[in-house]
Computed example of a mutant assay.
Amino acid sequence: MTTSPSATDKSVNPDPRYRKLTVGVCPDQWGVWFPDDPKQIPWQTALDEMAEAGFSVLETGPFGYFPTDPKQLRAEMDARGMRVVAGTGWGILHKQDAWADTERTFRAIGETHAAVGAEYVVHLPPMFRDEHTGEFTDERTLTGAAWDLYIANANRLGRIMKEDYGLQMVLHPHGDSHIETREDIDRIFRATDPAYVGFCLDTGHIVYGGGDNVDLIRTYPDRISYVHIKAMDPAIVRAAHEEDWSFGEAVGKKASVAPPAGEPDMPTVIGALADLDKPLYCICEEDMYPCDPSYPLPNAIRTREFLAQHGLGQL
């Protein structure tokens, strides 16, 4: 069973309008995309710096970056006054021969995260371009049997996560994926079962896909159950689409930025989320793989302080 963000979290704003919104963080804000990569900051350092930046709520990001043993993970969190609210996983849903691996991966994530009291699991859609080379590895658009299987397996995976682990699965939109544009989002959420499939509103990826965050919040108030707070530079996003860059190339050219730079307008989005009047974890992210290891801490502090000034979290 899931719980609501608690007033004991130092990330909860006591202002009545915003008190149901809880700010958190994940490894993406520290330039982490992979479970293990020599270009990434060590997890112990990242966790220390997250706590130093004033965060108490964590999404663990790529499974295997942080310890997967629940006793060790809980001990590391407790030592820093933090708690885990979500896990994250990549999993192919539209190919029959990939299901066994996807199920195995998410069951492992489910076991670890249920044991430490998490409430959500974020399904990140595999991209149709290679993250390093930008080469196409799949079709841009799902049709026919592949589309039908995507929907069936999204429902199937969400049901497993809820019934076996007590976790709410949320689908995450992403650049270079089959859930990127507003058309993709509408198509998927008309077809999936709301009992098992929620929506992770990633504000930056919505901008990357040409969508309107506030309109999505108002259109899907019951499906939005989790949030990633992220901003994008609209000029770089436009160039990425016009010149057909991969998402990885766009990130390398600084498509992802720290608010208040870029879009969407965060105070407006935070206000729209507050108007939903329901508990929401809002997890700070900024795509910056790879990055100078000295950059994430001061950047995260500035971002958290800006968000707090506009209702999300406390100063």
Rank of each mutant, 00 (worst) to 15 (best):
V116R: 00
A308G: 13
Q44M: 14
G61R: 00
L315Q: 13
A53S: 08
R107F: 04
I151P: 13
L315S: 09
D233A: 06
P35D: 00
P290G: 10
E59Q: 12
G117A: 09
R19E: 10
L171T: 02
D233M: 04
L312T: 03
Y150F: 08
K10W: 03
D233H: 12
G31Y: 07
N153H: 07
Q314N: 11
G110D: 15
L312G: 15
P14L: 01
V121M: 08
D37A: 12
V170C: 06
T133K: 01
K71C: 05
T133S: 15
D292I: 00
Q168N: 08
G166T: 07
A240W: 03
T105M: 09
L201W: 11
S56F: 07
E286C: 13
L167A: 08
V207S: 10
G117M: 03
P296F: 00
D48G: 12
E242V: 04
F66R: 04
M127W: 05
E111D: 08
N213F: 03
L73R: 01
G166I: 07
D69F: 06
V12C: 02
E139G: 11
I229G: 09
E263H: 12
L58Q: 09
W30F: 04
A154K: 03
A258I: 00
R140H: 10
I206L: 01
P35H: 00
W33H: 04
D193S: 11
P296T: 00
S6T: 10
D36P: 09
F306G: 12
G91M: 02
P296N: 00
E52L: 02
Q29Y: 05
V32E: 13
F136Q: 09
T303E: 03
W33K: 03
A191K: 01
L73K: 01
H94G: 11
E119N: 12
R17A: 12
H172P: 12
D176H: 13
T181M: 01
T181E: 14
P234R: 00
H113C: 07
H94R: 04
G158N: 07
N13A: 07
G311H: 01
G61N: 09
R187Q: 13
L273Q: 06
P293N: 13
D275T: 10
V251A: 12
T3L: 07
F199K: 00
A46Y: 10
A53Y: 15
V57R: 06
G175P: 05
Y120V: 02
I236N: 10
A7I: 12
Y208H: 04
G87L: 03
V12Y: 01
P38S: 04
P267W: 00
K253P: 12
V197T: 07
H132M: 01
A79V: 14
Q72P: 13
K254E: 05
E59H: 12
L273C: 08
T192E: 08
D15G: 15
V85R: 00
L216R: 02
W90P: 10
A191R: 00
F63G: 06
V214Q: 14
H310F: 08
D222Y: 11
T8S: 14
D164V: 03
G87N: 09
